[in-house]
């Protein structure tokens, strides 16, 4: 699986100690509330809202992102909200390892499991839960409060179950995610 190397402008991206590559053109509000697991790529014009959090003071993890994740161009990650026991608040969001989110996608899920690929132009509704080893096709709309089971392919508007994935998909997805990180290199002068 030899794919083309993706070059980026070195002045545009910040590389942290744990290998995260974050575009300077992305909007990350309140970075104290966001945890990155390492080797995560955040591309340009991505919006991550860390300021929308539960009531109360002090430090809180609003958005946790695992390792080897990719947040594509123009994607928006914002935590979900609801009224619980008469109190309105935003709730934390967890994105596990090896999750790819495509370009122009909007994600308001509660939890995304390991090894998930979300395509381009998707909308993931509030408090939806995506379990491990899933694939969301391009242009899918997942309604709020949906639970997507493991090893499934979802697509359409509204999102429906389309097919199953083989058990080997873990290895394939892991390889894909790792290879993407290795292919994402600074342009040499």
């Amino acid at each position: 699986m030899d794919e083309d190397i993706i070059y980026y402008d070195k002045s545009e991206y910040i590389e942290t100690e744990s290998g995260n590559k974050i575009s300077r053109k992305s909007v990350i509000s309140v970075p104290q509330n966001i945890v990155l697991g390492g080797k995560t790529i955040i591309q340009q014009n991505c919006i991550i809202r860390g300021d929308l959090r539960r009531k109360g003071s002090g430090y809180a993890v609003v958005i946790g992102i695992g390792k080897y994740c990719l947040l594509g161009e123009n994607s928006i990650i914002r935590p979900p909200y609801k009224i619980y026991k008469g109190v309105f608040s935003y709730y934390p969001m967890k994105i596990s390892d090896y999750v790819h989110i495509g370009k122009r996608s909007i994600v308001e899920a509660a939890r995304i499991g390991q090894y998930v690929i979300i395509g381009d132009d998707c909308v993931v509704g509030r408090f939806s839960v995506i379990k491990e080893y899933c694939r969301i096709l391009d242009n899918t709309v997942i309604p709020p409060n949906t639970v997507i089971p493991s090893f499934s392919v979802f697509g359409g508007n509204p999102g429906r179950f389309i097919s199953e994935l083989p058990e080997s998909s873990q290895i394939i997805f892991e390889q894909k995610a790792k290879q993407f990180y290795e292919r994402f290199l600074p342009k040499s002068q």
């Binding site: 509000s29 309140v30 860390g50 300021d51 929308l52 959090r53 009531k55 909200y81 009224i83 309105f88 608040s89 935003y90």
Partner: peptide, 19 residues
């Protein structure tokens, strides 16, 4: 409308804190 009003009052309190 109840949800909307609560959403509004939350954002009026918290949006100016960080932005």
């Amino acid at each position: 409308q109840n949800l909307h009003l609560r959403h509004l009052s939350y954002l009026h309190e918290y949006l100016p804190k960080h932005n």
